[in-house]
């Protein structure tokens, strides 16, 4: 790796806006942070002069904890904000909320927001670096980066030519879109598979294969990234019932046992066991679901570190 590599952007708003070199740089840097978080003392002083605000306007467990751990392991000062217990409830606008927090000299903002594009709006208004921790059904870039990191880890490095299938609720998933952009930048072949009602028509225009046949797709892929059915985002009926979904589209033990090769099983969580994936598959030897969580901290450390380095330069 060259010593002068920088991200091409001061924000991480989505994978779509990163170059392939950015993605490679983040994943290569994360490799070194993975070593750091496995040391007896899992902390480096790189961001000791940086303050990061974690603004979560939507519920989150692992992403918020993962970002907070990443920030603390980089020695950054952190402030946490959750919409449920804030002045947002009193009618304050997003820009006012963020400007008030930035007035307290915050350098970077990690934000999850239900409105797609909220991060772009903020990026045009404020000076701090912004990391998108999920915007509605649009993008979740750090999840895609940690997924790609985990796939590279599981498949021994290069993803070029590797076959990755994303199963499940593609329509309501921000992880799916970010995964597609990320994997394509790394040269992988990407397919989505699920019920026709949960796969948006524009998927083919992104150069993604579309399949409605789970068995055939499982046999095709090297990695199965299984997504959750997002009932909270579905205002109409997209599937007859969860039981029927499991029968026709779930990644079940029987389906996996019928395969003549091992398939790496991934899931970004939270898992609906018995719906999109069976417990026996989620906990099987081919599952790297918990590795994804561990890798998430290393990847987020890399993102924050590289953004901070760019801020210093700018």
């Amino acid at each position: 790796m060259a010593s002068d590599q920088q991200l091409s952007t001061k924000h991480v708003l989505g994978i779509k806006y990163l170059t392939a070199a950015d993605v490679e740089l983040i994943l290569d840097t994360a490799l070194q942070f993975k070593e750091v978080i496995n040391r007896p003392i899992k902390k480096v002083p790189s961001l000791r002069d940086t303050t990061v605000a974690n603004l979560f306007f939507e519920n989150s467990t692992r992403t918020r904890i993962s970002f907070e751990l990443a920030e603390k392991r980089l020695s950054a000062d952190t402030v946490n904000f959750s919409a449920a217990s804030s002045s947002v409830k009193k009618g304050e606008t997003l820009l006012d909320t963020v400007n008030n927090i930035l007035a307290m000299k915050v350098d970077m903002v990690v934000m999850r927001h239900p409105a797609p594009g909220a991060h772009h709006f903020l990026a045009s208004k404020i000076d701090a670096s912004i990391v998108n921790a999920g915007d509605g059904t649009h993008e979740h870039p750090t999840q895609a980066l940690l997924d790609a990191y985990s796939m590279r880890d599981a498949l021994g490095g290069d993803l070029r030519g590797k076959k990755i299938c994303i199963f499940g609720d593609i329509t309501h998933s921000r992880v799916a879109l970010s995964n597609v952009f990320c994997l394509q930048k790394l040269g992988a072949k990407v397919r989505v598979c699920g019920p026709p009602t949960l796969i948006p028509k524009h998927m083919r225009s992104l150069g993604v294969e579309v399949s409605y046949n789970v068995d055939e797709s499982l046999a095709w892929c090297d990695v199965a990234n299984v997504l959750r059915i997002q009932l909270e985002r579905q205002d109409t009926k997209f599937i007859p019932s969860l039981r029927e979904y499991n029968r026709h589209f779930g990644i079940t033990r029987e389906r996996v046992d019928r395969l003549d090769k091992p398939v790496v099983i991934m899931h970004p969580g939270p898992i609906n066991r018995g719906v999109e994936i069976d417990t026996a598959v989620a906990d099987s030897e081919h599952s790297i679901i918990l590795e994804q969580v561990e890798n998430g901290v290393a990847v987020r450390m890399a993102v924050l570190y590289l953004l901070a380095a760019r801020r210093k330069e700018g």
């Binding site: 010593s3 590599q5 920088q6 840097t29 070194q32 070593e35 590289l306 901070a308 380095a309 210093k312």
Partner: peptide, 13 residues
């Protein structure tokens, strides 16, 4: 690090 003059990309430990 804050002056960005040093090498940015880490090597292996």
């Amino acid at each position: 690090f804050r002056t960005a003059k040093g090498p940015l990309t880490p090597q292996q430990t």
